[in-house]
Nucleic acid binder design. Structure first.
Lengths: 199, 199, 199, 199
DNA sequence: TATGAATGAGTCTTCATTCAT
DNA sequence: GATGAATGAAGACTCATTCAT
């Protein structure tokens, strides 16, 4: 997955390759955003990380904010890959709860994924304009789960996933697989039978 | 609750009132931290918000980081009040799931509470030293729930709460009460009967 | 010798002992001046070092400059002790050159003495008003040597001593005793017989 | 010699002349360092002296320390010119002692040269990393004298020169030429015949 | 008499952005 | 099309000094 291939090794940035340079900058900015000791983004830092001249950052992006946005967008693309992978797994699974729990467990142990989620969340909280980007993951996940358990359960599970993700960002040790399985199964079941349950 | 009393209206800042000034600064910093379009904390911003001269910020706090920490600590105190209130509600409740769902629902609709949680989370993600502060809420919540549903369920519910909190921070409209109730009940039940359930 | 007795152990600074406090401040400032990694003097640093409240520094000295001056004066007092000791040694010596060389050699290996000289020099170079203080050592030394070798030789030897002192401040390893002896003897002899020598 | 050409008259500082601006800054810093009533170096002071905006100082030098070092290096270059001049004088002289005394006398009457020496010394005393710079003069001088009088005498003479230099920095009136001559001759002779002398 | 509170000026430094080339 | 030069605003922080108490 892109997020993990030797970051810092900037994209092809030969002169006269506007597209490549643009990408290299976005990549560099995205990498910076994932850095745990997250220094704030700055033109200089991005340029240095991308191995490109300072001027390039303002040449390709009219403001730092625009660059940040592009970087966050890049992050959502990485998440899309993860989502796609989850979707295909689920569609072939007999036991959706078990399959998804497994996926989630893997995901939570993957530092990059967690950092992406966190980076998007942080950026979005303080910048309302970026909220759609951060909700991309949530909506995507709910969308994938929905066919397997209905919209309500999907939403509940997605909320739980967010909680688990942010939890591991602070705790380092994620919830264990059995717990994840149990929770997901319970949430699915609860919504499957909700009419009877709560009457 | 303090967090909601006219923010920006600085505390008593009469000259020669060290205690009051210190508090005013902490208050101002805390307020700033809760601001949705949160600019980063800065001496200047805190001073301006507190209606105090710039020098006061460095006179009372030897570094901005120290001031930030004091502000975050202040935030956790507000959370403690919320936790205490939840604890007392639960201890008197017949139906714990229902009672807690109600509490949670109220909480999620209370913008300040949500912002406090978010502010603590953001601060802690980038500053490992502050993680204990951010986990205060999680651990406190789990601690309160535990007697009523066992540690496992408590943990699962707390994780879900975090998810729901961060979700509303981006979505504005929180999960509805019935959903919350259903989820909590399901999580409690799942862990109550886990031995049979997953065999 | 005062300069070496546990510095930092401030003088008796019980309240209601103005003299003691004044001294403690001067002492602390003098110590600070000798510190190799010479941070600049500041009210706060002096107060901290003396274990006295900040206000005391401005209460007893109307400006930092005045405090600095007092500290430098204190330094010259330490030098006076050294001068007195040298004087008495020389007055009892058969071979003045040998005796003084010995003294000088000891002196150059005594870090504090060297630092005092350097501190006075630095202070005086940039502050003409303080030059008399820095010349105190030079004049004192020349005065002591004069009776033994005449004013001209005394002056030459004193100049050489300054050179040797500043040299060791940068080099750490001072000139060896035989060299010192040879130089001093030569300078004495040269001036003793100057009429014949240079005709 | 550069050091004496109208100081304060900044170098060519036309916009878009990086080389010129860099030089102007170094020059300004060097000038400031030589100022008798030397205030500490500061970005603002250097910029003002160079007639350049504040930002220029940090644009060309990543830290004040780096700027200081560049300025001190500049100073050593001036000293090198003096050293070269001395070397060539000596190599053509019949009477080395007389020739060098003459040189030294001229040097001591040249305020800038003295100030350079002092500035290097002061900088080096508090900043061990800069000691090589300050020793440049001493080692250079000893190196030049060595062929004419042997390493030991050269060292002794160089030490004496340092003393004389620092002496004049505080006294304004330097040692007179005859004295210098006598001292140098004596030092040369003492080391020439040291084996017999000290037996 | 003593002292901690108070603050504005000034310290170094970073940086977004503009612009000449 | 590209980029390094350029700079003023702002960042955190230190501090001499004043002053109320």
């Amino acid at each position: 997955m892109a997020a993990t291939t030797k970051r810092g090794a900037a994209a092809p940035k030969t002169r006269r390759d506007p597209e490549g340079r643009r990408k290299a900058l976005v990549q560099a900015a995205a990498d910076l955003l994932l850095e745990v000791d997250g220094e704030e983004l700055s033109h200089r830092r991005v340029a240095a990380r991308a191995g490109l001249p300072l001027g390039a950052t303002t040449y390709y992006f009219s403001s730092l904010e625009e660059l940040r946005e592009a970087a966050l967008l890049r992050l959502t693309e990485w998440m899309d890959e993860a989502l796609a992978s989850i979707a295909s797994t689920l569609s072939e699974a007999d036991d959706v709860a078990a399959a998804f729990a497994e996926n989630l467990h893997t995901y939570l142990n993957w530092r990059d994924q967690v950092q992406i989620d966190v980076a998007l969340f942080i950026a979005a909280v303080r910048r309302p304009a970026l909220r759609p980007l951060a909700l991309h993951w949530f909506d995507g996940l709910a969308g994938i789960l929905s066919p397997h358990m209905g919209p309500q359960a999907a939403r509940a599970v997605a909320v739980f996933c967010d909680g688990a993700t942010h939890h591991v960002a602070l705790r380092d040790e994620p919830l264990d697989l059995p717990t994840l399985h149990r929770v997901i199964a319970a949430l699915m079941q609860a919504h499957a039978s909700k009419t009877e349950d709560l009457k």
